[in-house]
Amino acid sequence: MDQLLHDFSPGLFFMQGIILFILIVLMRKFAWKPILDGLQSREDGIQNALDAAENAKLEMQNLQADNEKLLKEARAERESMLKEARDLKNKMIEDAKTEAQETANNMIAQAQAAIESEKKSAMAELKNHVSGLSIEIAEKVVRNELSNKDKQLKLIEDMLGEATLN
């Protein structure tokens, strides 16, 4: 301890104090302040850039999600449209089918009616014709038969004979 106190130099202490004080002041002004500010601003810059990147990523994700939603919606819409169209088509076909059926049925009915009436008229005509013909034939036959006396007698005899048999 004595040795230390002996070695202690107040002058050196004083000089050291002054030098250290001046050095601290100078270093603060010319070195540490700009360095620490620079470091701080650089770190802030890096942090900001990172944040911005993160934000951009989030935004991108949002956008993507939006896109996907839109896409899904569009797809659903298309699907529904397609379905509607298909339904419409089916309906139209159905309608057309029933209509055609109806028309066809009507036409068939009409045709049948027409055929029936034609047939009837044709039958009536045929009947008339046939009756006329038969009368004609009968007239001819009767004329022929009744041209001589013998034959007339004979016919009568035949007819009578037949009638007795019956």
Partner: peptide
């Protein structure tokens, strides 16, 4: 130097 460290 003990004066230097004392000052610090």
């Amino acid at each position: 130097q003990i004066a230097v460290t004392a000052c610090l």
